[in-house]
Design a protein around this nucleic acid. Sequence first.
DNA 1: TGTCGGGTTAGACCGTGTATATTTTTGTTA
DNA 2: TAACAAAAATATACACGGTCTAACCCGACA
Lengths: 146, 146
Amino acid sequence: MTSTPIPDLSREHLTDLLRAHDITPTHQRIEIAQVLFSRREHLSAEQIMALVNRRHSETSKATVYNTLRLFLKKKLIREVIVDPDKVFFDPNTTPHHHFYDTHSGELIDIPAADLSIHGLPEPPRGMLTESVDIIVRIRPGAAATA
Amino acid sequence: MTSTPIPDLSREHLTDLLRAHDITPTHQRIEIAQVLFSRREHLSAEQIMALVNRRHSETSKATVYNTLRLFLKKKLIREVIVDPDKVFFDPNTTPHHHFYDTHSGELIDIPAADLSIHGLPEPPRGMLTESVDIIVRIRPGAAATA
DNA sequence: TGTCGGGTTAGACCGTGTATATTTTTGTTA
DNA sequence: TAACAAAAATATACACGGTCTAACCCGACA
């Protein structure tokens, strides 16, 4: 279970984490991993870039994108596509879904544990299911709470 | 022309359809509606533009985008966001979900009729649910059972 | 020390979509 | 039918997220 608010974010731990996923742990990759796993939020690439560069090193746009795609491929993070204008990256790889506030752009996790879908058809012949994502779009609206 | 069974795609019918949705039926809008509702597929904006201009009139990019957003606002069509690089427009506004073939980019409808979700939490206080979308990402893979 | 190769980099580039200012069409009134 | 105002369509320039390329850096290792 990795549900503790702040797991071990030491460089050693992150290095091990990257190695465990077959990722050569370079300085920049560790920085990016630190940003992703310390704030356990849904961050866009531009936010990640800003946070990484706020620290000390200068990390280029290309490296941020390369690294994020590498992390994706190695299943260290997930991609959440809810807005055509930007992709969110999600350090939570446990099965879950999302509320998406279309007004503020905020994403909120919905754990998949207590959730079930009935009647979903099989994928067409010869196809494998990669993922099942539920996106509940919400917006501020009439409700009793002020 | 397609030989598939087509609903009434006469200009008069489309004109009525637009009027019924409070949309002033201009020439370009009718052209775009015709493209959307004759091919009952999921089309991207660029595909729609190409198909509209293949006919006879020259319709600008801006008009295509304006019209699609107008149709969206008037609930004549739906938007399907599965790929950050392009948005698909779906002339099917009945409740349904999608298979998305990440390899070919093809979308396949999943009717919502026989489908149910259990355990979905309520949206946060003060929030209204706009939509609930299920996206099943699939890809060609090891031959399946059935 | 030299070289080899993965990683990083800046900057040019691409494609989807948007803003704006102007022209055209549409509907209305007479 | 003509004139007019309002709505819509247009071309063009622009913005932005993301990608590509070609050079560079730097550690590993002989």
